[in-house]
């Protein structure tokens, strides 16, 4: 009379496969992706409207992309160093990641200024205004990552207690790779569609 439900699968084996905090980060990444998907689809819709003005991709963005990719490499090496218990190089690499993140942010802002100087300010409704909104929001996400890296660096300086739990750095590096990939997506998006 009632649907019979299979209960044979062994649930206990599936449990705790992935650390809940890592899983949470993946869902958060999905969520942030939705926000940028909303913004870039707004861009595509808006492009069809009259009065659309596009812009030259400033050279700074190529440099900032390089900085971003390098920072991803740094965080990956930091993770490896942490797992190998090379705490000293871990400290240096995590600081390097944060510095490269700051370099990225500064280069982005310089890039915005280059566009701004061509006369494409906030007034209007073209590609440049979308760039300011979308890439600006991305910069905020990178800034959040920089703060996280600095906090982790300061924690690693602590003499009294030392944690060998790699979950926090793994979660942070996942986020860092994500904002990197997000920028690469946005960069290609702005290169191709304008």
């Amino acid at each position: 009379m009632l649907p019979s439900i299979e209960v044979k699968e062994n649930v206990s084996e599936q449990r705790q496969k992935i650390h809940p905090h890592k899983f949470t980060m993946w869902i958060a990444i999905g969520s942030i992706t939705m926000m940028f998907a909303g913004l870039t689809s707004a861009y595509i819709v808006k492009r069809q409207q009259p009065g659309w003005i596009s812009f030259e991709i400033p050279r700074m963005f190529w440099l900032s992309t390089t900085a971003m990719l390098a920072s991803s490499l740094a965080v990956q090496m930091a993770l490896k160093a942490f797992k190998d218990r090379h705490i000293k190089s871990y400290k240096n690499l995590i600081l390097l990641t944060a510095v490269l993140g700051m370099v990225f942010i500064i280069l982005q802002i310089l890039g915005f200024q280059q566009i701004w100087k061509t006369g494409l300010t906030f007034s209007g409704a073209g590609a440049a205004q979308f760039l300011y909104a979308i890439a600006g929001l991305h910069v905020l996400h990178v800034f959040g990552g920089v703060i996280t890296m600095l906090v982790m660096f300061l924690k690693s300086l602590r003499k009294t207690s030392r944690s060998y739990n790699s979950v926090p750095i793994e979660v942070a590096s996942t986020y860092w790779h994500f904002v990197d990939a997000l920028w690469v997506y946005l960069f290609i998006f702005f290169l191709v569609i304008h």
């Binding site: 909303g38 913004l39 707004a42 808006k46 906030f122 007034s123 205004q129 909104a133």
Partner: peptide, 17 residues
């Protein structure tokens, strides 16, 4: 949130989204 961010730009930055 993305819709509201663009709305904030229109309100205060002078964009025309």
């Amino acid at each position: 949130l993305s819709g509201l961010i663009l709305l904030l730009f229109d309100r205060h930055a002078g964009t025309s989204f």
